[in-house]
């Protein structure tokens, strides 16, 4: 069953507890973080609105990073986008292709939120969710999370007339459902992130397997054929030698007849 995060940006107060809980719980290197808070401001003094973009993996159902990942290090599981760093070759295609600019290179490999796969798999919650003092974060079955998000939006319409859900449909449906006070652009979040390039499908599902197969077949064929062909060629060579022996000596002074 698909899981999802709920991230209520009308609750988030920018304290960065999630950032550090994630770093500590996942034992990330000191210079690595999966979550980053980015302040946004609209308007001019004193007519301002502002908030934070809680920048982290959106866990797209149709994840571009998974599509472009050549090694399968990035993969979908339980509706979330996992990363097996041991399988990562560090090609950086995910870094380049993510519509949300989430993955970064750390220590030569891709680095991003994997939804605390180990922790959740063992019955816990993602570290960020456990600690969030604002209870802006929740984690659960996606359908329930989505329903909750809709309730939240309905409840805050008075205060935020433009309140909306983000992530129900984007990129095939996100595993990070946002409750936003305003249009996503106000937090620099793309309203409609681009799909994975179509060519990636062709590349991964046709070109790569076909190429791999063709190469293996060619090598195998060449191996078999090579043995036959070499035998033929050796026979030809022997023929020539015998012809030479039988016929007039070449007369080459260096040649020593056996």
């Amino acid at each position: 069953m698909a899981s999802a995060f709920l991230l209520d940006m009308t609750r988030c107060i920018g304290c960065e507890a999630c950032v550090l809980a994630c770093k500590a719980g996942n034992q990330l290197p000191v210079d690595t973080q999966y979550i980053e808070l980015i302040e946004h401001t609209s308007g001019t003094f004193p007519d301002l609105t502002g908030g934070f973009q809680n920048h982290r993996c959106y866990h797209c159902a149709d994840a571009t990073c998974v599509a472009v990942c050549p090694t399968g290090a990035l993969f979908k599981e339980d509706g979330l986008t996992r990363l097996d760093r041991d399988a990562c070759s560090g090609c950086g295609y995910c870094v380049q292709s993510c519509p949300y600019e989430v993955p970064v290179m750390s220590d030569g490999r891709s680095s991003k939120c994997d939804g605390c796969a180990a922790n959740v798999g063992a019955g816990g919650s993602p570290w960020c969710v456990t600690t969030c003092p604002a209870k802006a974060l929740e984690f659960g079955v996606r359908d329930a999370i989505l329903a909750k998000a809709k309730e939240r939006v309905a409840a805050i319409k008075d205060r935020y007339p433009k309140a909306q859900i983000y992530g129900e449909t984007q990129a095939g449906g996100l595993g990070l459902i946002l409750v936003l006070p305003d249009d996503p652009e106000t937090l620099d979040i793309p309203a409609d992130p681009p799909d994975a390039p179509a060519v990636v499908d062709l590349w991964k599902h046709v070109v790569q397997p076909v190429s791999m197969g063709a190469t293996v077949l060619a090598a195998a064929g060449a191996g078999v054929l090579g043995i036959i062909a070499r035998r033929n060629h050796m026979a030809e060579l022997r023929e020539v030698e015998e012809t030479e022996k039988a016929g007039v000596s070449s007369g080459d002074p260096d040649t020593e007849d056996v």
């Binding site: 399968g72 560090g90 220590d107």
Partner: peptide, 17 residues
């Protein structure tokens, strides 16, 4: 090693790049 899972371990740490 960069594009094929079974050889990705060779690229571990990025040195193969």
């Amino acid at each position: 090693a960069l594009v094929w899972g079974p050889l990705a371990f060779l690229a571990a740490g990025g040195w193969s790049r």
